[in-house]
Design a protein around this nucleic acid. Structure first.
Length: 572
DNA sequence: GCCGTTTTCGGCCCGACTGTTTTCAGTCG
């Protein structure tokens, strides 16, 4: 079962949102938000903890601690229920529209009775919103654009949400009698950035009890179908989960079939047909005699087709079949190849873990190096100063002896200003072991301005990595407008690495961009941008995205041994 | 609501941008 922390985090964030609508005091919702993040990033599972232990979570005091305790013992928070009764859920959804915050959402609900995003679109169309104070033509236009943006992601969830749901279901089903192999397939196994539905495969001869266990899972909000070998349900976030039970002897063929992509499957089925074979979810057959040639493992099925095993992350019909036939599949980067994380935060800025905790967590992962890269002063909200970061550097240096197997790198996440300027002059930047430079403001600049700005940062010899290049949020904020061809050319030429941000809400660069950039000889850094020790585990999503971009460990600077990385960090 | 001490209250996430509000509220990172 997943940790209770995530459910508590969601409940506290909802509490914060509802308070921000209802409460005059802006600090109260912030306290809930802060506590939510701290719980989400807390390394220990809160399940079964008593009040005293709960109060050890930073940012959690008596009042919130009581609510967490109530949630852990009863599954609900009475006061949260009371807030929900005052504010329909759809009103909270309004705040997901870019440009709409608690005040505007409250006005729309209070003045016009608007209770959902759909209501809002209709009301704008009918001109009813125009009369409302603070809702001029530009604002309405922005809201409509935001609604379109949300709608385009409707029905899909991020990789992280889908993975949690899949793990949860698998954990519940794994111990049922008669369950052999169990695994997720589909777009989740291919690690696509958004997931429409989760496919889970179980090998068993006795489907009925497994089906029953599935549809009665506590996370199920609605049963869409309940058959002999296939059932479909909806869980949180409206996510659909399909379960299929198949005989163990056709596991490989079924995994290929249900992993897809459709385009990949079409390609290999065509290959089969051309040589007198037939491929479906039950196996690879001789088309004439019907004899079963392979089915048990994916490797066996691919082999009979004259192909090596193709990693799920490559199965998009982007040339992987041709490469496989030519023996030219890339030797893809794996999570075990990663030797360190080069973009992490501590509680000196907006992280929730201390420097010591982050170092311990990284060391526990067996990393050979770790860069601590807290935010720089130009991101004003973080209140970083030159004194604070120099003090952190001293503390980091002093901690080095505690981690003899891990090289500690002192860095910063710099802000690329609107003109491409950075937070500190070059002399000061030269004092860092490593820097990440990212865009955090002025997202709406023109393509020319944005490109000039990013190019200037790339050309700066004291910048080693460009963080989350496009700043997009999966299913949320659109990417900035940027001449990627020019950016990739410059990054390739200067040796400035481009980040593959591993957070499932970002995945930035995305797979297509990685493929494109790689053609320019760009180097990459797969980083978690961790704001908590638990976030270091997000590395797997970054590695999967890098795989989808066909990267090998030679392409990824944090898969290099320290001696090689160290040489590459010298000023150009 | 939390927290720390300048210690039981008062400060906390600051500053810029946007659109529209004729002087600034709301939103965002």
């Amino acid at each position: 079962m997943p940790r209770a922390n995530e459910a508590i985090e969601q409940a506290l964030l909802e509490f914060a949102d509802l308070l921000s609508i209802l409460s005059e005091d802006p600090f109260k919702p912030r306290a809930y938000e802060k506590a939510a993040r701290a719980v989400g990033g807390y390394p220990e599972d809160l399940t079964g903890k008593d009040l005293k232990e709960i109060l050890e979570v930073p940012g959690v005091g008596k009042s919130i601690g009581d609510k967490i305790h109530e949630f852990l013992t009863s599954g609900t928070i009475t006061e949260l229920e009371a807030l929900r009764a005052q504010i329909p859920g759809g009103v909270r959804d309004l705040m997901t529209v870019p440009g709409l915050g608690p005040k505007k959402a409250f006005a729309l609900h209070g003045e016009l009775g608007i209770g959902s995003v759909d209501d809002l679109a209709i009301a704008i169309g009918e001109g009813r919103v125009a009369g409302l104070k603070g809702f001029g033509p530009k604002t309405q236009e922005n809201i409509l654009r935001g609604i379109t943006q949300i709608a385009s992601a409707a029905g899909r969830v991020t990789l992280g949400v889908a993975m949690d749901a899949a793990k949860d279901v698998i954990a519940r089903l794994r111990d049922l009698p008669g369950v052999g192999k169990i695994a997720y397939a589909g777009s989740l196994r291919r690690m696509c950035e958004t997931i429409g539905d989760v496919d889970i495969l179980v090998a068993s001869r006795h489907a009925a009890p497994i089906m029953d266990g599935f549809v009665t899972h506590p996370a199920v909000t609605r049963v869409l179908g309940h058959g002999d070998t296939k059932s479909s349900v909806l869980v949180e976030h409206g996510l659909q989960v399909d379960l299929r039970v198949i005989p163990a002897q056709v596991w490989g063929a079924a995994m290929i079939y249900f992993t897809g992509s459709k385009a990949h499957n079409v390609r290999i089925r065509e290959m089969a047909v051309r040589v007198g074979l037939k491929l479906n979810e039950y196996g690879l057959f001789d088309a004439k005699t019907g004899e079963l040639l392979a089915a048990k493992t994916e490797e066996a099925v691919y082999a009979k087709l004259g192909l090596p095993f193709i990693e799920p992350t490559l199965r998009e019909d982007r040339g992987e079949v041709e490469a496989a036939l030519a023996g030219a599949l890339p030797d893809l980067i794996q999570e075990r190849d990663i030797r360190g994380d080069l973009h992490t935060h501590t509680d000196l800025t907006d992280g929730v873990a201390s420097l010591e905790e982050m170092l311990d967590a990284a060391a526990a992962r067996g990393y050979a190096y770790l860069a601590v890269t807290d935010h720089a002063p130009d991101l004003a909200m973080q209140r970083m100063t030159t004194e604070k970061i120099l003090d952190q550097r001293e503390r980091l240096r002093a901690l080095q002896p505690r981690h003899p197997a891990m090289k500690l790198l002192h860095g910063a996440e710099l802000n690329i200003g609107p003109e491409g300027e950075l937070d500190w002059p070059d002399e000061f930047l030269a004092g860092f072991d490593l820097t990440v430079a990212s865009v955090h403001s002025h997202f709406t600049q023109s393509r020319e301005e944005m490109t000039r700005r990013v190019l200037r940062a790339i050309e700066n010899p004291h910048v080693h990595i460009i963080g989350h290049l496009t700043t997009r949020k999966v299913g949320g904020r659109p990417p900035v407008d940027l001449d990627l061809e020019a950016v990739f050319e410059a990054a390739g030429r200067t040796g400035t690495a481009l980040e593959v941000n591993a957070h499932p809400d970002r995945l930035d660069l995305k797979d297509e961009h990685i493929l494109w950039a790689k053609r320019h000889g760009v180097r990459f850094a797969i980083d978690t941008d961790a704001h908590a020790t638990t976030h270091l585990d997000l590395m797997r999503f970054g590695v999967a995205t890098a795989q989808r971009g066909w990267l090998t460990k030679a392409d990824v600077i944090n898969a290099w041994p320290w001696s090689k990385l160290e040489r590459s960090l010298k000023p150009r």
